[in-house]
Design a protein around this nucleic acid. Structure first.
Lengths: 215, 215
DNA sequence: GTCTATAGACCGATAGAC
DNA sequence: GTCTATCGGTCTATAGAC
């Protein structure tokens, strides 16, 4: 039944020739997998997540996972790629006219929201087996570089504008923004039940940009 | 053999009767175990740490570990208690005369240093099996409460002094300080090799208290 | 000689992989 | 659905302290 290829020629003759029914299914399942991995990665981290859980969550057999991804590490890497793609899409959608500092704040606000929605895969601990895979995963590295470059550009601009402190090396600002996306403070505040998501985001955002000290 | 009680009456009639040669050994080994657990917890996290590794690191048999602690979770809990004890000792050693805000900064500086020295056990991810054990471990909970209360006191004082922003709920300041002790920024900066430990600590401390924005 | 603590083999469960 | 490795946890023979 793989022979039913040119079923619907499709008016749009894109470079991606035929979405091919089969490939569409394949792609849809792969998306479901990555989505499930992302969710589990966000709520329990890489080490605690089991491949069985992923299969269960998606509702497919464990063996099927290995038709899509060769290892647990690659599953996680796909989720990391996904969040970077979402981030990149967000960066590109930001109004060109906004100041660099404003863009940085919007990014921070967005990543915190993603975290609070349980969709932010947490960083693997320093020497996890995941790190090695990630470091050899070019799609991941390329995206990370692109996102970092874009943010770095805005950071330098914001420092030139006098909005971000010039005393802090740009790389430190960048790392700080990345780290805030995974800040455990968000989880702590959520756990108290005293704060709305918006409250949490605004408090952490303020703390991040203006500090704890009174001004 | 319990009858050989008054062997060495010992001039000092402490509540802790006899340090007992054997007990001293026991205690020394237990310290070595907790130290090893602390180190492994700091570098790989709870899930990645194996009990065999701990035994190896200490240089004793795995079964011996279970003479001291009933489970892997309790091993980790002991390490958490240890870091809280060290923290408490640090808090108590701070000059009474220092301002509340100054004390808070010193605490933050100290915890970051501990982290950079690879001695800060990282927080277990949200729903680790460790969490359950910790929540039933009164020594841990009591210490955590005492440390939090002391810090909370200083935070309120610092806000009254106008040194810490009154716009931030004290609990948020507390959580922020705890989170900075585990901030991945520290590891990122260390990994670049561009910064000395002191540079890292001062940059992150500044970012934490004064924020990213220019003043 | 008695008793404790140790070392190292061992077990059952489970995870990743196919 | 199966295979294998590994992990947390246990068991037992033994070495050493008293």
């Amino acid at each position: 039944m793989v022979t039913t290829t040119a079923k619907r020629p499709s008016a749009l003759a894109h470079a991606t020739k035929k979405p091919s029914f089969r490939e569409q299914m394949h792609q849809a399942r792969e998306d479901a997998i990555v989505l499930a991995v992302n969710k589990l990665l966000a709520e329990k981290g890489f080490e605690s997540m089991t491949v069985d859980e992923v299969a269960n969550e998606v509702g497919i057999a464990k063996a099927s996972l290995y038709k899509h991804f060769p290892s647990k590490e690659h599953l996680a890497a796909a989720a990391m790629v996904r969040i970077l793609q979402r981030t990149q899409a967000f960066l590109r959608a930001l109004p060109q006219a906004d100041s660099a500092a404003s863009k940085l704040k919007q990014v921070a606000r967005w990543t915190m929201g993603v975290h609070l929605d349980g969709e932010m895969p947490l960083l693997p601990s320093e020497n996890s087996s995941l790190r090695a895979t990630l470091m050899g995963h070019s799609a991941y590295l390329d995206l990370l570089t692109e996102v970092s470059d874009q943010l770095g550009e805005w950071i330098v601009q914001a420092q030139a504008d006098g909005a971000i402190s010039r005393d802090i090396p740009a790389i430190v600002v960048l790392y700080t923004l990345f780290s805030r996306a995974c800040d455990p403070v968000l989880g702590f505040m959520k756990a108290t039940g005293q704060f709305s998501h918006d409250d949490i985001v605004e408090h952490v955002l303020r703390t991040c940009f203006d500090g704890l000290s009174a001004r």
